[in-house]
Simulated scan of single mutants.
Amino acid sequence: MTGWLTEAVPRGRIAAFRTLIYLFVAADLVVFTPWVRTRASVPGELYQPLLVGRLLPLPTPTPTVVAVIFWGLLLAALLAATGRAPRLLGWTVCALYLEWMIIAMSYGKVDHDRFGLLVALAVLPTAGRARHGDTTRTEAGGWALRVTQIAVICTYFLAAFAKLRFGGLDWLTGSVLARAIIRRGTDLADLIAQVPYLLIIAQFGIVAFELLSPVVFLLPARWRLAMVGFFYSFHVVTIATITISFAPHLAAMTSFLPLERVRPLVWARRLAGREPRTPTTEPAVPAPDVDAGPPPSEAQAPVVGRPAGP
Score class of each variant (00 low, 15 high):
A8E: 15
S255F: 02
G72M: 08
K163P: 05
A40F: 04
P10L: 02
A189F: 08
L199N: 10
V285S: 07
R165P: 02
W4C: 08
A162C: 04
A95F: 09
S233I: 14
L177A: 07
P283R: 12
G44W: 04
V207H: 10
I153M: 06
F231K: 03
S297Y: 06
S255E: 05
C154L: 15
E210S: 04
L158C: 10
F230S: 14
D190S: 14
L20H: 00
V237A: 12
T64H: 08
W171S: 13
D291N: 10
H132C: 03
F70Y: 14
E282L: 15
I150A: 15
A251V: 15
F246K: 00
L51C: 02
L169Q: 10
A67M: 00
A26D: 08
R184G: 15
L89D: 03
A221M: 06
V42N: 02
E275D: 14
E99V: 15
G72I: 06
G72N: 09
D289P: 00
A76I: 06
H112L: 07
L259S: 01
R183F: 07
R179V: 08
W4N: 08
G293C: 07
A208G: 08
A144I: 05
H235N: 06
V285Y: 02
R87M: 06
R184W: 08
I192M: 14
A26S: 15
G185W: 11
S106V: 03
V110N: 06
F230Q: 12
F231D: 07
G90R: 11
R131N: 11
G229R: 02
G142F: 07
A15H: 06
F157S: 14
Y197K: 09
V123Q: 04
I242E: 13
L259I: 03
H132A: 14
P310Q: 09
T82I: 06
S213Y: 01
L96W: 10
T62I: 02
L20M: 11
L172F: 09
R54N: 12
L198R: 11
F32I: 12
G108T: 06
A130P: 01
R222D: 14
V52I: 15
L79S: 01
V303L: 15
A287R: 15
L51T: 13
S41H: 09
F246C: 01
M1E: 12
V147G: 03
L117M: 14
F115M: 12
V68A: 11
M1S: 12
P196H: 04
G116Y: 04
L89E: 02
R146H: 02
R137D: 09
Q300R: 13
V65E: 13
G293V: 06
L78D: 07
L46D: 11
R277E: 14
V195K: 04
V25A: 02
A193V: 00
F209L: 12
V207E: 12
F256Q: 02
V42E: 09
L177N: 07
D291S: 11
A16I: 03
L117V: 08
W223N: 10
V237W: 04
L191H: 08
T6Y: 11
G185E: 13
A292V: 01
A180M: 15
E275W: 14
P295H: 01
